[in-house]
Amino acid sequence: MSLLSRTIRRLLPYRLPAIDTQRVYTLDTRTELGRGSKRRCYAHPSNPGLCIKVARWPQRSDAHEASLVEWYCSRGLDRRGVSYTHRPHIHGWIATDQGPGLVVERIRDHDDTPSLKLHEALARGLVAAESVPELLAQLKDWVMSSGVAVNDLSLGNMLLRRRDNAQELVLIDGIGGQKIKLKFMLYRRFGWFARSISRHRWPRYERKIYARIGIGDRETALHTAFEPPQRPPAIASVDRTLGYGTAAQAPGYRRASQRSASSTALISTRIDRTRSSRSRADNSAARSSLAPTNQR
């Protein structure tokens, strides 16, 4: 798959568009809004309603790949008429002193203040943890009905936009992934495929988020983190075509199941050893306290 993805990157015409270099924007480090593994986000120097995403290491050959994925996915959703209820507008590219930058709408609340990330809103008490499941359910309805491929859903990838009488989550990252590969091409062309991938991954996203904010049983969340991934319907049909009667008979599933069993067994062994060590320490302390004191 890696070789296939590299071939696709060379063949498909996903390249940076022509950028006007007559005006180069200077980005101030004091206006940095956040950073991820590949990009930094700055406030727009002259428009408070916009922000600019630039590569952290612009000299790399794949430096702008994540921004290209976001831009092309947004254009594909625009062509399909997908609403901006839970996603920002993507305005295009500009030249900056840190290389090409992707201009994105800066999400704001009803009082025109910048919306906070979900974990920040939770920390400030602007939203209760008990309200998160309902907000995620609204986001999921939009994702499924619109055929949006969500490749990363976390507390840092969602903003809480507060309106007059309602609140909603806005995805500022994680749509379509970060690399140009075969799946990315399928996401853009086939809404049913994007929907299938999101439906397959959504329960795992929810479990991780609930574990982070303290909703639900923590031990259950820890256990389910090591569950082998279920095969999406689109991939399961391929398994059947290749002669695997069930998903569990597919080689990839068997390997995932073995890794899951090994990880779970390792955790159980470590827990048992810790409990045994504590028990021995407690027994030793008890014997010491009961032993007679030698007096001369």
Score class of each variant (00 low, 15 high):
W202R: 08
S115Q: 04
S262G: 08
M1F: 08
C41S: 10
E130V: 13
S288F: 13
L155M: 09
D20C: 10
P88M: 01
I172K: 05
L4M: 12
G92H: 07
L159Y: 07
R207W: 07
Y14K: 09
H64N: 15
D112I: 05
P292V: 08
P229G: 04
I90N: 01
G214P: 04
A247T: 06
R275W: 08
R79E: 15
A281E: 09
K179G: 02
S2Q: 13
R35L: 04
G101D: 07
G81N: 07
D109Q: 05
H64Y: 15
C41I: 15
Q22N: 14
R60N: 13
V104Y: 02
Y205D: 03
L266P: 02
D217W: 08
R204D: 12
L11F: 11
T29A: 13
R6G: 06
K140E: 07
D217F: 00
A225G: 06
A285E: 10
A128W: 10
A129Q: 14
W93A: 00
W192Y: 13
S196H: 04
I8F: 10
A55F: 04
R15G: 06
T31R: 15
S74R: 09
Q167T: 12
N47C: 10
S2H: 15
E206S: 06
P203W: 07
E130P: 05
T269Q: 14
N157Y: 06
V103C: 02
R199S: 13
S276A: 14
P232C: 05
W192M: 08
T293I: 15
S146H: 06
I94T: 15
M185I: 06
D78P: 01
Q295K: 15
Q230C: 08
R199L: 10
E105F: 03
Q98I: 00
G191K: 12
R161Y: 00
P17M: 11
F184R: 04
S288E: 14
D97L: 05
R188P: 02
W71C: 01
Y205T: 06
L50K: 13
E134D: 10
Y84C: 09
A128G: 09
R240E: 12
L33K: 04
L68D: 03
L222N: 12
V69M: 02
